[in-house]
Design a protein around this nucleic acid. Structure first.
Lengths: 115, 115
DNA sequence: CTTTCATATGAGCAATCGTTCATATGTATT
DNA sequence: AATACATATGAACGATTGCTCATATGAAAG
């Protein structure tokens, strides 16, 4: 008896090519989680601050005119995504950017929206 | 009478440098809106499909194992962000990628998560 | 050890998001 | 015109998000 093809509208060849390049479930999850982090203007502003200088939490809060708590929550998100590092100096904790992908990703995004 | 400085923890010089490079309110909004679009694995999967081939809505739906409605809603989001184009051919509408930033942004994201 | 300053964290709330379901729009075929 | 097919869209739902508020942790100074 005939086996029905899984796809009717798409060439089987195309299906195979797509399946070859499609990232796995876990990679897709991690990738979308990463971009979610960039998907908030407060977090983007924090990253732009850190482009210029390492800074403590209350410094960032002052500069952006937001509460310490709000900034701390967002830094936790950036930290979890490994976009920022931190070091302790006495009572103060200084945050800094962890790598260059941050800048590249933001620059590419900026290019897209300004064309 | 002495004017109190606006910021206590941050050097005035740093404040100025940050204000110079910080994108304006509208740019920040657009930028975060753009990255929100990448922040969903269904939309990322659609983009990966379109890397391989232009495709109709029901084709994408079949390939990804999702409903036509769900895909159509997400394509509307991608369309609004100008990440995809479309052309009509009879009853069918074919979607395709609109520019190369999509690939660069996804590649940079992938580099970040796989290191 | 108590106080103070810097930061982190948990609960709660309004707002936003992604999907489903039902239905509307639009194009070709008869 | 009537039907069929491809796509779009609006309402509704549970889930997630970003902030606030109150409080906890942690380090230095007294």
């Amino acid at each position: 008896m005939d086996q029905q093809p899984a796809y009717n509208h798409v060439h089987e060849e195309t299906v195979q090519r797509v399946n070859e390049i499609m990232p796995g479930e876990e990679e897709l999850f991690d990738l979308s989680e990463l971009f979610k982090v960039f998907g908030d203007s407060t977090r983007i502003r924090i990253l732009y601050v850190l482009f210029e200088s390492d800074m403590c939490v209350c410094g960032i809060a002052e500069l952006l005119g937001m509460t310490q708590s709000a900034i701390s929550h967002q830094l936790a998100v950036l930290k979890k995504a490994k976009l920022v590092r931190y070091r302790r100096e006495g009572k103060t904790i200084f945050y800094s950017l962890s790598d260059d992908h941050v800048r590249t990703i933001l620059d590419q995004g900026m290019e897209h929206i300004t064309e």
